[in-house]
Computed example of a mutant assay.
Amino acid sequence: MPVFTFEKISPPIDRVPSAQPAAEKPRSVIVQFLDRFVEARVKRMAAADSSGQEKQKPEK
């Protein structure tokens, strides 16, 4: 085998086509949990806006 080569060796081609497209990775439980909190807060803020109340400053 030569010490130096300047040819690009391409990877082997996958000759078996995948039967199904790659499924999306399921979201983690923590992300789902946070999404529920955000949805609840958005609904609360929308209800407060429609009732004419001032927006409350978030407490830290």
Rank of each mutant, 00 (worst) to 15 (best):
residue 4 F to A: 08
residue 50 S to G: 01
residue 43 K to G: 00
residue 42 V to A: 04
residue 31 V to N: 13
residue 13 I to C: 01
residue 26 P to A: 06
residue 48 A to W: 06
residue 20 Q to A: 09
residue 3 V to N: 12
residue 4 F to T: 11
residue 44 R to W: 14
residue 40 A to R: 07
residue 47 A to E: 09
residue 3 V to S: 10
residue 16 V to T: 02
residue 47 A to K: 10
residue 43 K to E: 08
residue 6 F to W: 11
residue 39 E to A: 04
residue 36 R to W: 09
residue 43 K to H: 05
residue 56 Q to M: 08
residue 14 D to W: 02
residue 18 S to N: 03
residue 6 F to P: 02
residue 28 S to I: 10
residue 53 Q to L: 14
residue 56 Q to P: 14
residue 42 V to D: 05
residue 51 S to T: 04
residue 15 R to D: 06
residue 54 E to A: 15
residue 1 M to K: 11
residue 42 V to I: 11
residue 39 E to F: 08
residue 36 R to S: 05
residue 3 V to K: 09
residue 33 F to N: 04
residue 5 T to C: 10
residue 15 R to P: 01
residue 4 F to H: 09
residue 29 V to N: 02
residue 20 Q to M: 07
residue 18 S to G: 07
residue 45 M to G: 00
residue 54 E to L: 15
residue 33 F to E: 07
residue 32 Q to W: 14
residue 21 P to R: 03
residue 16 V to G: 00
residue 34 L to H: 06
residue 46 A to Q: 10
residue 60 K to I: 15
residue 14 D to C: 04
residue 17 P to F: 04
residue 57 K to A: 15
residue 44 R to G: 06
residue 8 K to R: 12
residue 59 E to K: 14
residue 55 K to P: 11
residue 24 E to M: 07
residue 7 E to Q: 15
residue 56 Q to K: 08
residue 26 P to Y: 06
residue 60 K to H: 14
residue 22 A to K: 08
residue 10 S to M: 12
residue 35 D to E: 12
residue 51 S to C: 09
residue 45 M to A: 12
residue 19 A to R: 04
residue 15 R to Y: 04
residue 41 R to G: 06
residue 55 K to L: 15
residue 24 E to V: 05
residue 18 S to I: 01
residue 54 E to W: 11
residue 23 A to D: 03
residue 20 Q to L: 13
residue 44 R to T: 03
residue 24 E to W: 14
residue 38 V to F: 12
residue 36 R to A: 07
residue 31 V to G: 03
residue 9 I to Q: 07
residue 6 F to D: 05
residue 60 K to E: 12
residue 7 E to P: 06
residue 1 M to I: 14
residue 1 M to E: 14
residue 59 E to G: 15
residue 15 R to K: 13
residue 26 P to I: 00
residue 53 Q to S: 13
residue 22 A to T: 02
residue 33 F to G: 11
residue 49 D to P: 01
residue 47 A to T: 00
residue 40 A to T: 00
residue 43 K to N: 05
residue 28 S to M: 05
residue 34 L to T: 00
residue 34 L to Q: 10
residue 43 K to M: 05
residue 10 S to P: 08
residue 3 V to P: 03
residue 38 V to N: 05
residue 46 A to Y: 04
residue 16 V to S: 01
residue 2 P to C: 13
residue 43 K to Y: 05
residue 11 P to N: 04
residue 43 K to T: 06
residue 35 D to K: 13
residue 30 I to E: 15
residue 28 S to T: 10
residue 13 I to W: 06
residue 36 R to I: 06
residue 32 Q to D: 09
residue 5 T to S: 14
residue 11 P to G: 02
residue 7 E to N: 14
residue 41 R to T: 01
residue 14 D to Y: 04
residue 1 M to T: 10
residue 48 A to I: 09
residue 1 M to S: 14
residue 23 A to N: 00
residue 30 I to G: 02
residue 5 T to Y: 07
residue 43 K to V: 01
residue 4 F to D: 11
residue 33 F to P: 00
residue 53 Q to I: 05
residue 11 P to L: 03
residue 40 A to K: 03
residue 50 S to E: 07
residue 18 S to R: 05
residue 48 A to L: 11
residue 3 V to G: 04
residue 5 T to G: 09
residue 48 A to E: 05
residue 4 F to M: 11
residue 12 P to T: 01
residue 28 S to D: 12
residue 36 R to N: 08
